[in-house]
């Protein structure tokens, strides 16, 4: 089923107060909204607040959504980005809280694999943290949220060309940081 039609129909059900439709919409997007907020803000606790704020906006303003004009996800991630940046600016200067450390992954059956995965995650998190904010956002929209370049550029409210320039710089910087050991072959 077309994801866009599905989001639109869920929103139509939310307008009539359908809590289950709201739950299904969260099933689809809440993990990515949280991941995007966290990549901008850095703190898991603050990213949770922003995620709640974004979904409250979805619940309250669902009737204002006009199906067919744009993709719901473009709006959703744009709102997430704007609120995350506002939140970050508000708390700028405050010391980074301890809960900015990544949430532990669900335990996997094989402890060795889990350790490898945790190390890899830690390595990539550090590499991402070294990127400038706009490049990190571009990478998160591409790999974590899974948007194409055009939709990600719309979410960041920049041109596709500008977005791709961010991706070029981010991919090169990540290759440099992560290096041959992590990526293998000609990195």
């Amino acid at each position: 089923m077309d994801e866009r039609e599905d989001d639109d129909s869920l929103l139509a059900q939310i307008v009539s107060g359908d809590r289950h439709a709201f739950g299904r919409l969260m099933d689809r997007h809440a993990d990515r909204v949280f991941a995007l907020a966290r990549s901008v803000i850095g703190s898991a606790a603050d990213a949770e607040d922003v995620t709640q704020d974004v979904f409250l906006a979805v619940w309250r303003t669902a009737e204002d959504w006009r199906p067919g004009k744009a993709r719901f996800t473009t709006w959703l991630y744009r709102v997430t980005l704007n609120r995350s940046l506002n939140h970050k600016n508000r708390v700028a200067g405050r010391q980074m809280p301890l809960d900015a450390v990544a949430e532990p992954e669900d335990p996997a059956p094989d402890p060795g694999e889990a350790l490898d995965a945790a190390r890899r995650r830690e390595r990539i998190d550090r590499a991402m943290a070294d990127l400038p904010e706009s490049q990190r956002t571009a990478m998160t929209l591409t790999y974590t949220v899974g948007l194409g370049n055009a939709e990600a550029a719309a979410a960041m409210e920049i041109s596709v060309k500008a977005f791709e320039a961010l991706l070029v710089r981010a991919r090169r910087k990540l290759r440099e940081i992560l290096g041959r050991e992590t990526l293998g072959g000609e990195a």
């Binding site: 107060g17 809590r19 709201f22 739950g23 969260m26 809440a30 993990d31 990515r32 949280f34 991941a35 898991a44 949770e48 995620t51 709640q52 979904f55 409250l56 619940w59 949430e103 992954e105 669900d106 890899r120 995650r121 990539i124 991402m128 990478m139 998160t140 790999y143 974590t144 949220v145």
Partner: peptide, 19 residues
Amino acid sequence: ALWPAPLNPTLRARLDTIP
């Protein structure tokens, strides 16, 4: 590596209270 982790159940519970 960058695929989003499953949502923290505490956050999910918070979101479920919105409606």
